[in-house]
Simulated scan of single mutants.
Amino acid sequence: MESPIRIVVGLGNPGEKYAATRHNVGFHWLDQLADTLHASFRVEAKFHGLCARATQDDTECWLLKPQTYMNASGLAVAAICRFYKIAPEQVLIVHDELDLEPGIVKLKSGGGAGGHNGLKSIIAQLSSQSFWRLRIGVGHPGNKHAVVDYVLHPPRKEEASHIEQAIDRSMRVWPLIAKGDLAAAMHQLHTRCDK
């Protein structure tokens, strides 16, 4: 059994203009989790974001949507981790993943940033790569020069449907993640994903 997750961070960019984009899938996931747990977000200036306190089976955790824009997400994550003395291993970052097709979702611990600016910022600010990541596939445009434009646009209709299914599937393993049974969560999620 791993350490229980004490904070879940959904990555995205603030503002209506970015709300439906591929890059904001982390915000979207966190909104769904907050709805499930009947948690409501409020502005927390000292954490540079929108925060909610949530409870799952007597386990309390924080939900955070950084409002710093993607490239500075680490400022918000580091601020709340320092304040509540949360170790990187107790952090789950939910983000869009270019290397996975829409409909695929993977859970993993550690690793590099893989070119994701939000992860780069978090690694730099925490001085650690050992946080958990829930990687929600959005696909790749096929050309590295098209990536920025691609992630800042909404997914096509059929992609959006696959992404929704992946989010729903990952929501089902949340109780396992919350209590720190991440190995079981990974097994269940990846077994379902790869069928």
Rank of each mutant, 00 (worst) to 15 (best):
M1A: 09
M1G: 07
M1S: 03
M1C: 01
S3G: 04
S3E: 09
R6P: 02
V8D: 03
V9K: 05
V9R: 02
G10V: 09
G10Q: 07
G10L: 14
L11G: 06
G12N: 04
N13S: 11
P14F: 14
G15V: 01
G15F: 05
Y18A: 02
A19I: 10
A20Q: 14
T21A: 13
G26F: 08
F27H: 08
H28I: 02
W29P: 01
W29K: 00
L30P: 01
D31S: 06
A34T: 07
T36P: 00
H38T: 07
A39N: 05
R42F: 14
V43M: 10
E44F: 09
E44D: 06
A45N: 07
F47G: 02
C51Y: 10
C51D: 00
C51S: 06
A52P: 00
A54H: 11
A54T: 08
T55K: 10
Q56G: 00
Q56T: 02
D58K: 11
T59A: 08
L64V: 08
K65A: 11
Y69H: 11
S73W: 14
S73M: 12
L75G: 02
A78L: 06
I80C: 08
F83M: 01
Q90F: 06
Q90D: 10
Q90T: 00
Q90Y: 03
V91N: 04
L92H: 13
H95V: 15
D96N: 15
L100N: 01
P102C: 11
L107M: 12
L107H: 03
S109N: 14
G112A: 09
N117R: 12
N117A: 05
S121V: 08
S121K: 11
S121C: 09
I122G: 04
I123V: 07
A124M: 03
Q125E: 14
S127D: 14
S127A: 13
Q129I: 13
S130P: 00
S130F: 03
S130T: 15
F131P: 00
F131W: 06
R133W: 13
R133L: 11
L134Y: 14
V138D: 07
G139T: 01
H140D: 01
N143M: 08
N143K: 15
A146W: 01
V147S: 10
V147M: 12
V148E: 04
V148Q: 07
D149A: 08
V151L: 04
V151Q: 02
L152I: 07
H153T: 15
R156V: 08
R156S: 06
K157P: 04
E158G: 03
E159S: 12
E159D: 15
A160E: 06
S161Q: 04
H162D: 05
H162Y: 13
I163H: 05
E164G: 01
E164D: 11
A166E: 04
I167N: 02
I167Q: 10
D168T: 05
R169Y: 09
S170E: 02
M171T: 01
R172L: 15
W174L: 08
W174K: 03
L176W: 05
I177L: 12
I177F: 03
K179P: 00
K179A: 00
D181K: 10
D181A: 11
L182F: 14
A183N: 05
A185L: 10
M186S: 12
Q188H: 10
L189K: 01
H190F: 13
R192L: 14
D194L: 13
